[in-house]
């Protein structure tokens, strides 16, 4: 993955908090994915402005005690891209 690339939530998905589910979800045509806290945290940083490197830097500074956070984020972004939750400029 090019860390300089800028991810966006794919235009066919919508990220939102669902009170009844007690979690963030991605909504798409006739479907819903429930997100765990880390996934919601990473996707919450995706704004179409910040690059992968920017997001890694921000989360690393917010969670300095979490080992391997950079590679976790990269892995998640790759998986989210495969599932088409993310698209890259």
């Amino acid at each position: 993955m090019d860390k300089g690339s800028i991810p966006r939530i794919h235009r066919h998905f919508r990220l939102q908090w669902e009170e009844a589910q007690g979690c963030h979800v991605l909504l798409y045509p006739e479907g819903m994915v429930k997100l765990n806290d880390s996934a919601a945290l990473i996707l919450g940083c995706v704004d179409g402005v910040r690059s992968v490197a920017d997001i890694i830097a921000e989360l690393t500074s917010r969670f300095p005690d979490v080992d391997g956070i950079a590679s976790d984020i990269e892995e998640f972004m790759a998986a989210a891209s495969t599932r088409r939750w993310l698209e890259f400029d």
Partner: peptide
């Protein structure tokens, strides 16, 4: 209000 998120 009940929690429905998808509407057809």
């Amino acid at each position: 209000g009940l929690g429905a998120a998808q509407l057809g």
